[in-house]
Design a protein around this nucleic acid. Structure first.
Lengths: 335, 335
DNA sequence: ACTGTAGCTGATACCGCTAACATCAATCGG
DNA sequence: CCGATTGATGTTAGCGGTATCAGCTACAGT
């Protein structure tokens, strides 16, 4: 930096001002400095800037492991969006989620002086922990519900589940069964609640839900139980991976999906359009969630986020795994 | 830090020594310092440490977008492994891959003073660019082949492809067709080469390969062309997403996979075990790749990586999409 | 001509830590 | 018993920026 200053014939302070976009620098001086920067291939030393009280230009992201589709795509969206806003992204992957590990992750990020943190909080434990953590660092929560105490971005899980359930009911199914995600996960609870609500608003009593762990394996197991009950004609499965497992179990049991039984998933993963049959599902736009999360965090860093809660609406994608319940209506108890 | 020193009755230098694990500190002194650290809830200021010449404790990861299964799971493995080694991870997601963008990403990471960089280089362009980039920063390349000029970790794509092809030939198929990945991708080239080699070693002339873009959509399109040719009894598809598309196209055309036609995929994504029928595939252990990549980088940082190239062997997972080619042998031209 | 003000730039003092060397006591070989 | 060595700790001087305030010029108002 001293070299740049010398070459441009100014003090290092002026160079600093040019770099941080301070307006009160003469056009001509600015040009000279920028030329010197270019000529010397100079780049700021982030650590020095951070130490001297400037901003680190880095935001922290805390998330659970890679195995889940939603969380990981969100992290990538955040990283990509951050880059567009000239921010670095430091990612902390939590092996297991607990108040301790989250607190530790936040402290870790704090010691690296990130400007703010986005937490991918997909389990209730995480949200609870966050509501108890009071850091002065700007913090945005991404989750399936409004997070108390911090600005948040969420896909409306309940609305999505209602969309799915309503679609099945409108096709004429007497009732809709549900394979839910594991307890403790916010999205699992939200989707189950939406399913229950929609059934309720149609005056149907929700049957007992099956529970999976998001994996295709667990969906397969649930699917086997579902196949064994011929009265079931419509199933809303809490995510696409499990839905694919259900599809296969039904297929093996000789029940034709989209004909004997209708299935709706959730997420719209890339494979769902090409499953056999193509899966009707609820699309969540994780990219939007990530980007909105980042822009909310940047607002929070500027102190003007307040207590904003952004809701992203999911969308029903109708494919061939659902169809009018002609045969179903004949067989099922009238609803 | 000065407070800690005061409370422990030592100089700040001793605190620094305790923090960085310098051995020449008396046990008793060390204990006193650690106690003070705990009492004051002190944490190092990473930027200050970096500035003063210590290590930043951060490693950089450069990767392509989120849409591809392999790259993204690898990034997560790296981040998780890094955390176990008390390193932060700064992730740069490249919107588009070119020499310019990679160089820019490296420079960006350099200005944040990462200790080293892991590049997820899945396209040839990236590897070429890297071989031309000569940075003094330790740099490890993850890719489908040995990267010249830098230590690297790779899954042996050729071996995986040969495994898949051999499996099909051993089942009695006269020849094996191939749906390859997009040109420019190292893995696509490696798998195609392995397929060609294995066919060659059985004295079969490789048929013309179909080309997809890794997506299920493109696999579906290829599948339709394959279904139209009744002489095809065995297909090796370059990744599972495309294979699922092929599966569906064949299904729609009324060709029974695992009976009329055998399909082998590559990757072993979570859904493959539950496709209809379950997909025989080649498993790549991305977690191992990520971890080996990190440990190689840590060795490189210590200056003892040399020109190591680690190869991770893939594994054939046999499921129901492949079966003895009884009907095929009758129909196909003798090979 | 003099003061006031605005606009631009410079000098200086840190930010919190570590490298390098200095210091001091204890131990050791001859 | 003395100089040399070793081990534990302290002192000093930055690392490369930015905050703060001071200084200088040009111009307007009186």
């Amino acid at each position: 930096m001293a070299d740049v200053a010398r070459l441009a014939g100014v003090s290092s302070m002026t160079v600093s001002r040019v770099l941080s976009g301070y307006p009160g620098v003469r056009q001509e001086t600015r040009a000279r400095v920028e030329e010197a920067i270019g000529a010397l291939g100079y780049r700021v030393h982030t650590a020095a800037r951070t130490l001297a009280g400037g901003s680190s230009g880095t935001i922290g992201v805390i998330s659970v492991g890679a195995s889940h589709y939603g969380p990981s795509s969100t992290v990538f969206s955040i990283a990509a969006a951050a880059r567009e806003f000239d921010r670095s992204t430091t990612v902390v992957i939590l092996a297991k989620i607990g108040e301790g590990s989250i607190r530790q992750a936040i402290e870790h990020l704090q010691s690296t002086h990130v400007e703010g943190i986005i937490v991918n909080a997909f389990v209730q434990t995480a949200v609870d922990a966050l509501s108890r953590i009071d850091t002065d660092l700007p913090l945005v929560v991404l989750c399936g519900d409004q997070a108390p105490g911090h600005p948040s971005v969420a896909v409306d899980q309940r609305a999505g589940a209602r969309l799915a359930t309503r679609h099945l009911l409108e096709l004429g199914h007497a009732t809709v069964h549900h394979v839910r995600g594991p307890s403790g996960w916010i999205d699992a609870a939200g989707r189950a609640a939406g399913w229950r609500e929609e059934l309720g608003s149609w005056g149907r009593r929700p049957p007992r839900a099956h529970t999976g762990d998001w994996s295709a394996q667990s969906g397969y197991a649930a699917g086997q139980r579902i196949a064994a009950d011929p009265s079931i004609t419509a199933v809303f499965v809490a995510n696409d991976h499990m839905a694919l497992g259900v599809l296969r179990a039904l297929h093996e049991a000789g029940r034709r999906v989209g004909d004997d039984v209708s299935i709706v998933g959730f997420d719209d993963i890339a494979e769902s359009a090409f499953s056999i049959p193509p899966l009707t599902t609820v699309r969540q736009d994780f990219d939007t969630v990530g980007r909105e999360g980042l822009s909310l965090l940047l607002r929070a860093i500027d102190g003007r986020a307040g207590d904003t809660h952004i809701t992203v609406e999911p969308r029903l994608i109708v494919r061939n795994s659902t169809d009018a319940a002609t045969s179903a209506r004949r067989r099922a108890p009238t609803g």
